[in-house]
Design a protein around this nucleic acid. Structure first.
Lengths: 199, 199
DNA sequence: GCGCGAAGTTGAATGTCGTTCAAACTTGTA
DNA sequence: TACAAGTTTGAACGACATTCAACTTCGCGC
């Protein structure tokens, strides 16, 4: 099969490209990841990358998707373990563990730099909007499951998930744009506050 | 004075450029606002715009600043009126009025399209980071004043302001990237929920 | 082995940008 | 009226993403 042959030789190199892209984004910023520079780093040509990915935007979107796949694997055990416990004494702690996966590791977090780029380009672009929805939806589904089991007294898990993710997105942006506007630690503390408000 | 003469002839045309930029952003998107197309619309040349604004990024940043100035005028009466009332029965309503100024009017809101662009470009760029901080700080200061007077029982106005703005940023992004991921009305309802949580 | 079609790969060409800059043009003023 | 300072233009430049025609490699049936 042509498909088989193509894919046999493709899978690994494809990952190599995505890994290299993430690394370059992390230490040089998105703007400096050009077709030419990325190709040079991989010992190939810019035209070749476009042969596989079609456009630079597709390549970056693939990179984000691949990155997100890894984070899906990280959050799943948190959700699963919360669902298996009957009495959940550590509900808020499970939430914080989930938040730690969601939030950027620091400024320069390549995954979040890609998110900011996606947000900026998505308006007026149906394909990017759809991609954004898809990725968001996965987080939402898992977060609702976690909220339902970790904090079963919560009135509206759906709405709380939406509020939490909106706030996390805001903090993630602040963390990743840098300048100390917000830190990961502060974002986690604010998560605690939002979940256990006392006026 | 050279300065005087230059500015006498500059003030109005400068505003015309910013208005035209906002209009073009609203109906064509940021990417299609090029030096050449913006200049053509204004009956001038691309080189001329750069003579005044230095770079495209500066022009866009000026546009955002000028846009924000208008919104500062809109939120001030809300804060002032809340501070003048002793007993604040309508505390939450004042907050929603403030949120209505903060949030985008719809997708295509040019101010928020500029914010998304700023977020995407700010990492690795000290000047943009500083600009972002400055604008954020103004919203924060007014919001803390409003929270202190509109909801005086609130334990931590500073922290609540930070959480609210983070959430609003997240919703604003979702509204402006479009596709119905979030609406202005939903964002306002979530604001109500965050301020008056009941588990 | 051999040949042949399909897939992979390259780098030069193309078009669109933002930006630079030397030249031409205005304006205020002495 | 002349001159210096400020303004305006558009051609030229460099950096891009993207296209594409040519070339190479690969897999497979004979």
């Amino acid at each position: 099969m042509t498909q088989t042959r193509a894919h046999r030789r493709l899978e690994r190199p494809r990952e190599q490209v995505l890994v290299a892209a993430l690394e370059m984004i992390a230490d040089q910023g998105l703007a400096r990841v050009t077709m030419a520079s990325l190709a040079r780093r991989l010992g190939t040509s810019g035209g070749h990358l476009l042969y596989y990915f079609g456009t630079r935007n597709h390549l970056l979107l693939e990179t984000l998707r691949w990155s997100e796949k890894g984070f899906a694997d990280q959050r799943r055990p948190i959700v699963d373990s919360a669902e298996q416990q009957r009495k959940n004494q550590q509900g808020v702690e499970a939430m914080l563990a989930f938040a730690k996966v969601y939030l950027p590791v620091g400024d320069r977090d390549p995954r979040w730099l890609l998110w900011l780029e996606l947000w900026a380009r998505a308006p007026h672009d149906p394909e990017l909007i759809a991609a954004q929805h898809g990725l968001d939806e996965e987080w939402h589904a898992d977060l609702v499951r976690l909220l339902s089991s970790a904090l079963p007294d919560l009135r509206d898990p759906q709405g709380t998930s939406t509020r939490l993710r909106a706030m996390w997105d805001g903090f993630a942006m602040a963390i990743v744009t840098g300048g100390g506007l917000a830190t990961r630690g502060q974002a986690l503390e604010h998560t605690r506050s939002l979940l256990a408000p006392q006026y």
